[in-house]
C-alpha cells in the first residue's frame, strides 16, 4: 500500500516529528514511572530513594479506612457500571436504529454533554439536586451520580460499534425467520458485544477514578479510594500514597488491556 507516501512529509520534518513523538511519550510516562519507582523506596521522604522495600505496601494493606474506601469504590463501580452499560446500550440501539421519534440534535446534545462537562459543574449540579429532592448523601447518591456520567460514555462507544455494523445483518436474520428477540439475541448482541464490553470497561475505569463528583455527593462512611487519597495528598504527601497510586495505575492498565483484547477479538 502506498497509503502514507502521500503524507508528503520531508525526511527532516519526519525526523523532527519522531523526536517530538518520543519526547511526548517520555513526558506522558516518566511521571507515572517515577511514582511507581518511589513506591518501592524504603525512604520516609517521597522524592528520595531509600533502597528497595515493600514497607509502604504493607502499611497500605494495614490501613483500615483505606481498605474500607477501596471496598466502597469497587461496589460503587461495579453497580454503576452494570446499570450504565444496560441503559447506555439500549439508548445507543435506539439512536442508531430508530431515528424518527425525536430530533437528532437535542438528544445527541443531552447524550454528549455529560462527556465534556467539567467535573466540578456536574458535582455542583448533583449536590444541589440531591439536597433539593431530599436524598440523603451516601453510597446511593454516589452510584446515582456515577451512572449519570457513565451512560453517555457507554452509549457513545456502543454507537460507534453499531455504526460499523451492516444493517443488512439484522434484516437477514429477520428474513431467516428470527423474531425480533432472536435477532437481537443471536445477531445484534454478539456483533456489538465488543462495543458493549469496551464501553462497560470505560465506565468502570471512570467510576474507579472519579474524585470531584464523588467528593461532593458522598456521605459519612461512603468515601471512595480516590477521594480518600485526594484527602491524603492535600494534607501531606507520604510514600504510602505512592503505593496506592501504583495500585490504581495497575488497575487502570489491566482494564486498558482487557478492553483492547476485547476490541481486537472479532
Amino acid at each position: 500500500m502506498t497509503l502514507h507516501e502521500g503524507a508528503a512529509t520531508g525526511r527532516r520534518l519526519d525526523r523532527m516529528l519522531t523526536i517530538n513523538g518520543w519526547l511526548v511519550f517520555a513526558f506522558l510516562y516518566l511521571p507515572i514511572l517515577v511514582v511507581i519507582g518511589f513506591s518501592f523506596s524504603g525512604a520516609n521522604n517521597v522524592g528520595t530513594w531509600g533502597g528497595f522495600s515493600l514497607r509502604w505496601y504493607e502499611r497500605m494493606l494495614g490501613n483500615g479506612p483505606l481498605i474500607h474506601a477501596l471496598q466502597n469504590t469497587l461496589w460503587i463501580a461495579l453497580f454503576s457500571t452494570i446499570v450504565a452499560t444496560v441503559f447506555g446500550t439500549a439508548a445507543a440501539l435506539s439512536l442508531d436504529r430508530y431515528r424518527r421519534w425525536v430530533s437528532k440534535g437535542t438528544f445527541d446534545a443531552v447524550l454528549y454533554m455529560p462527556v465534556i462537562i467539567p467535573d466540578v459543574t456536574m458535582a455542583v449540579m448533583l449536590l444541589l439536586w440531591f439536597t433539593q429532592i431530599g436524598l440523603p448523601l451516601g453510597r446511593g447518591t454516589i452510584i446515582l451520580a456515577h451512572i449519570a456520567f457513565n451512560i453517555s460514555f457507554v452509549a457513545i462507544v456502543v454507537r460507534a460499534r453499531l455504526a460499523n455494523m451492516d444493517p443488512a445483518m439484522e434484516e437477514a436474520a429477520a428474513d431467516l425467520y428470527a423474531s425480533r428477540w432472536a435477532t437481537f439475541r443471536r445477531v445484534t448482541l454478539p456483533l456489538i458485544m465488543p462495543g458493549v464490553l469496551g464501553g462497560g470497561l470505560l465506565a468502570l475505569t471512570l467510576s474507579l477514578d472519579d474524585v470531584v463528583i464523588t467528593s461532593f455527593v458522598q456521605g459519612p462512611g461512603s468515601t471512595t479510594l480516590p477521594v480518600h487519597v485526594f484527602g491524603l495528598i492535600r494534607r501531606s504527601v507520604t510514600p504510602e500514597i505512592n503505593a496506592v497510586s501504583t495500585l490504581m495505575v495497575t488497575a487502570s492498565m489491566i482494564l486498558v488491556f482487557a478492553s483492547l483484547a476485547i476490541q481486537r477479538r472479532e
Binding site: 447506555g88 435506539s94 430508530y98 421519534w101 459543574t121 448533583l126 453517555s152
Partner: peptide
C-alpha cells in the same frame, strides 16, 4: 414507539439526574 422504549431508561435517567440538576443550578 419501540425505539422510544429502548431509549426511555437512559433518557429518563439523564433527565432525572442531568437535565433537571442542570436547570436547578
Amino acid at each position: 414507539w419501540r425505539g422510544f422504549f429502548h431509549a426511555v431508561p437512559a433518557y429518563a435517567y439523564l433527565i432525572a439526574f442531568f437535565v433537571l440538576p442542570l436547570i436547578i443550578v
